[in-house]
Write a protein that binds this DNA or RNA. Sequence first.
DNA 1: GCCCGTAATACATAATGCAAAATTAAATAT
DNA 2: ATATTTAATTTTGCATTATGTATTACGGGC
Lengths: 226, 226
Amino acid sequence: MNAFDAQTRPLKRMSLHEELAQKVAELIVGGELEPGSKVPEKELCEAFGVSRTPLREALKVLANDRLISLEPNRGAWVTPITPADVEDIYPVMGVLEGLAGELACARLSDAGIAQIRALHTEMEGQYAARDRAGFIKTNQKIHEAILVGARNETLSAQFQSLAIRVRQARYAAPVSDERWALAFAEHEQMIMCLEARDGAGLARVLRTHLDHKAETVLDWLDQKSS
Amino acid sequence: MNAFDAQTRPLKRMSLHEELAQKVAELIVGGELEPGSKVPEKELCEAFGVSRTPLREALKVLANDRLISLEPNRGAWVTPITPADVEDIYPVMGVLEGLAGELACARLSDAGIAQIRALHTEMEGQYAARDRAGFIKTNQKIHEAILVGARNETLSAQFQSLAIRVRQARYAAPVSDERWALAFAEHEQMIMCLEARDGAGLARVLRTHLDHKAETVLDWLDQKSS
DNA sequence: GCCCGTAATACATAATGCAAAATTAAATAT
DNA sequence: ATATTTAATTTTGCATTATGTATTACGGGC
C-alpha cells in the first residue's frame, strides 16, 4: 500500500513460459507453423534465445489447449483441424457467445451499446464498399465488444481458447457473397436485439450466426481435402 | 488400418507430466491441498519420486486451468474459489450442460435414454430413503451420462475443466431439504424432457438447475467467510 | 531377393546444478 | 519496544547434462 497504488498496476510481467506459449501460439495461428507439421523445438529455442526447459513448459500448456499434440518421445506436432473438430467446437462457441450476448444485454451501459452501434455503422459502410478486410476486422471488434461487455472472465477465457483453435481455418475460409450477405443480415438483427436489450433474442442470433460460420469453414475444409 | 482395429486403441500411455498434473489435481479437489495454501514443490517431488522438471511442467498446465496460480519467483498457490468465480463459472457451465442436453436429446439412443431413466429411478429410491451420499453419486452419473450422450469431446472437456474448479465447493456446500427437493423436482423435469426428446426444454431445465446449484454454493461461501 | 533382427544414431524426456531472487531472521538504530 | 536495515538461508527459474526411447540403417537368415 503506497502512494502510487493508483498508477501502478501489479505489473504482472509474464513469466518466460507464458510469453513463449503466446509467441508459439501466434506462430501457429499466423500460419508460420503449418497444421500437421512438427514443432521444431531446437529451432524455436534458438530463435527466441531460450533454453529448452521454458519452451517445453510452454509446449505443455499449448498441448493442454489442444493447439499442439505431444506424442510421447516423438515431440510436438501442430494439431490439424478436422471437420469433426469444427462440428464439435462451433456449437460450443455458439452457446458461449450466446451467453455473452445475454449478459452483455443486461450489463452493457447505453454508451457501450452505442459504441457497438457505431462499429456496426462502420461495418455497414465497409459492406457497401465491398471492403472485405475491413469488414472482417470491424466484425471481430463487435464480437470482442460483446464478449467484454458480458464481464465474465471465465466465459471470455473459454471462448478465446476455442476461437484460437479454429482461427486459422476461420480466416482462411473464403466467404461467398451470399454468406457475406447473410452474415451482415444477422449482424443487423444482433444490433436490434442489443438495442432492445433482448438477451434471449441476441443469444439465438449469435448461435445461428456461428452455425453458419461453421458451415462456411466446413465447406472450405471439405473442398480442401478433395 | 489393420485387422485388430476394433480391439486395439492407440495405447496412449500418459507422459509423466500429465500423470503428475492429474495426481496434483486430485490432491487439490480431494482437499489434501487447501485453497490458498502453497503448493509444496519439493515435498511433492519426493512424494511422487520424480524430479522437479516434470512436476513443474505439470504445475504450468494446472495454472493454465486456473487450478493453481503461479506467482513469479514466489511459487505455486492453490487458487481459492471466490464468490465472483462462482458467479462467473456456473452460468458458463449452465449453457454448456444445456447444449449437452440438447445434443443428448438428439443423439442418444432409446436404450441410452432408458439407461438414464433407470438411474433416475434409482435416485428416486435414494431420495425417498434420504440417502444423501447415494443420491449425489447417482446424480453425478446422470449428468455424466448426458454429457457423454452429447458426443462432443470439446464440450465435455470444457465442462470438466470448469467443473473441477468448483468441485471442492460443490461437494462441501451443504444442501438444505428445500434445495434437495427442488433439485429432485428438476431432475423429474429433465427425464421428462429427455424422453420427449425436447432438447430446448432440457437445456432450459439444466440451466436453471445449475443456477440453483450456484446459489447453494454461494450461500455456503458467504456464510463460511463470515 | 525379401523380411526380420540387431546395432547405431537421433531425439525426447527427466535429473541435476547454478545463479538470482525472495523470505527469514537478526541486529542496529530510532 | 518498535521499526528498519542487513545478512543468511531458502526457494525459484533456467540451463546444462545425463538417461531413456524411438527411428533408421545395416547385416544375416529364410
